[in-house]
Design a protein around this nucleic acid. Structure first.
Lengths: 144, 144
DNA sequence: ATTCTGAATGTGTAGATACACACTTTGCAA
DNA sequence: TTGCAAAGTGTGTATCTACACATTCAGAAT
């Protein structure tokens, strides 16, 4: 019964996938959540914290704590404010780390893709579909 | 680039799905992770903590902390040891809460299923495929 | 100029996650 | 019987997550 819960299935999958990346990235003392955040900041889109949170799919307050850790480790820094917006930029140290992490990330991506075997974008589609369904369901349930 | 990361996609999806369930369960002060754990214990399979952890797809040490919270809230209790194994059982309070949570859970499941639209088991298959791929990839990368 | 509204960010608190390490018990082997 | 290896469980530490609430600031209305 509980085993068919979408939340449990999704969490199990996310945990296992994250563990796979984290094991590969461990020697760099970098977790995949931090890697993703670094990638967004390195893209130099000058996003606000709120926009980054939306792009990463995490709560804004969650991202604030994660950014503090990256800043503490000197991987990113605040690059002034754009009005109320705070813009972060990647540091030289962050760029070096990201450059070391990228080939590792590519390797895991390739390994995962190979294990899945099917079309490359297929899991992405399934995940996005489930995510969107969850958003819709949340709205539907809130109204009721 | 980072946006195509399987880990990010899986995490975003898991977070969004969990949020949907959690919002629906909020009035019971129950989170979906706790709900899943309660379901496993209510099944009365007399599992060890390690086996439960495997079934739930979380680290054993993670489950230990989660069980402590359920025990603190008087929803489960230790039902003696079977050799080295510790067996937990659901309490009367836990059963009452679970009975209140089940219809909510069913509603969210139904809402999610409707939003997905396709065959019911389809997201489960996609999630399981990705999970297994991650396990395989982890093994492959560890050997290398 | 003052007030007010809303946007953007930060904090308190609490749970979820996991790696590394430590402890306890069991069963087997010398 | 004693010692040891493995199974099972617990703890230290750190990160990730998010809701509720607080704070700060820009721009608009009066």
């Amino acid at each position: 019964m509980g085993g068919s819960c979408y939340a449990l299935q999704a969490r199990r999958t996310a945990n296992q996938v994250a563990r796979t990346y984290n094991q590969a990235l461990a020697h760099l003392s970098l977790e995949v959540a931090q890697f993703s955040t670094l990638c967004v900041i390195a893209a130099e889109q000058a996003l606000s914290v709120s926009d980054m949170a939306a792009q990463l799919g995490v709560e804004r307050s969650t991202l604030v704590r994660n950014l503090k850790i990256l800043e503490r480790d000197d991987l990113i820094r605040q690059a002034g404010r754009d009005g109320r917006r705070i813009v972060y930029r990647i540091t030289a140290k962050g760029s070096r780390l990201l450059n070391k992490a990228l080939p590792v990330w590519h390797q895991v991506q390739a390994e995962l893709g190979a294990s899945i075997g099917g079309v490359d974008g297929e899991p992405h589609r399934a995940l996005r579909a489930l995510r969107n369904a969850a958003r819709q369901a949340a709205s539907a349930l809130t109204e009721a």
